[in-house]
Design a protein around this nucleic acid. Structure first.
Lengths: 181, 181
DNA sequence: CTTATTCGTTTAGTATATTGACCGAAGCTA
DNA sequence: TAGCTTCGGTCAATATACTAAACGAATAAG
């Protein structure tokens, strides 16, 4: 209750809306907005949902607010954590504190390498951009061959597989959220 | 409202709890549980939180079930959406349906370009890897000059600025979550 | 100065969420 | 069979969320 009102107020003012403007758009009364912001009210989830919809934010995102990293981190090329073995190299941007939601990697696929016939599937969402070389990407029933500058994005629960059938190594940069090691 | 009650019931029965047992543990009445499960009630967020706590699940996790993208998306280099103007180019991997949480961009900074003295600050978390050239990154009170293969990551609410003081263009690939346009 | 507008807060009245007791059904024991 | 227990659903009474209107402060225009 404490945090909730303050967060609503923050989101509202950041959007440049008055209490009345937000109330109008959400379909609730202005008094309700005021009372919520001042912790005088425990809104129903239906009311909260209306308000968040007007603020263009989902319930999930709204309640995800409590885990915040507080510092910037820089990495030299040598400091990137090598987590791949063999012919596929994964270099990870990673802080030790495991509260990060965003995971960015520099990946290198040697010619002929493949994540294997067993399709991958896990939580989160992922995407990437090819830097050099070419890569075959299988997702669900789709297959695409991507070249430099091409990109992909999909929810990670869809079964997927990566394969380099070319003659040169393929470098790409990928990101996924949340980190799922 | 529809989905909510069904989800509560599913979580409860999966835990082997009766309505009364759950009500006792959550500190609410059994009637409340029954009415919620049958979509006769729009609970307050406080009540819902009590119930979810007894079920050992967070509000964030509870509401995260509804927003699932269902397809993989591929992009050719030409299809990337150009959202930058002038000397700084931002090319965005973007689906039209705006429910994605992950935003990946290919950015190009011409020599001498700068995001400007007014520091940027917004929600989410962001990071990137330098592909070619060099880039100065300011975050809060830190400044670093990054070269090819180097990387950074920080929460986006920290004031930040990017500048290319070199003589060649700088290319990098970045990711941020959530998208905040 | 007065008038008008917009802001956030407060409040009385109304709608609704919540409680606690009760109901019938189903299972179990004697 | 009767008696006991536990289940989920229902309902009158109560607590509380919600609304609509009013209030005071701040700003701007005439």
């Amino acid at each position: 209750m404490e945090q909730l009102g303050a967060t609503i107020r923050s989101l509202r003012t950041r959007s440049g809306l008055s209490q009345r403007a937000l109330a109008l758009e959400a379909g609730v009364s202005n008094g309700t907005i005021s009372l919520i912001e001042n912790h005088k009210l425990d809104p129903t989830v239906g009311q909260l949902k209306k308000i968040l919809t007007a603020l263009n934010i989902s319930m999930a995102d709204f309640f995800e607010s409590n885990n915040k990293p507080v510092e910037a981190h820089f990495f030299t090329a040598e400091e990137l954590v090598e987590i791949g073995r063999g012919e596929i190299s994964y270099k990870l941007i990673s802080r030790s504190g495991a509260d990060q939601k965003l995971q960015i990697m520099s990946e290198t696929y040697a010619p002929g390498t493949d994540t294997g016939p067993t399709l991958l599937s896990h939580d989160g969402e992922e995407g990437g951009i090819i830097v050099s070389g070419a890569l075959e990407v299988f997702v669900l029933n789709k297959k695409r061959t991507l070249g430099p500058g091409d990109a992909y994005q999909f929810p990670s629960h869809l079964p997927h597989r990566f394969r380099n059938t070319g003659t040169v190594e393929c470098r790409l940069i990928t990101a996924c959220t949340p980190p799922s090691i």
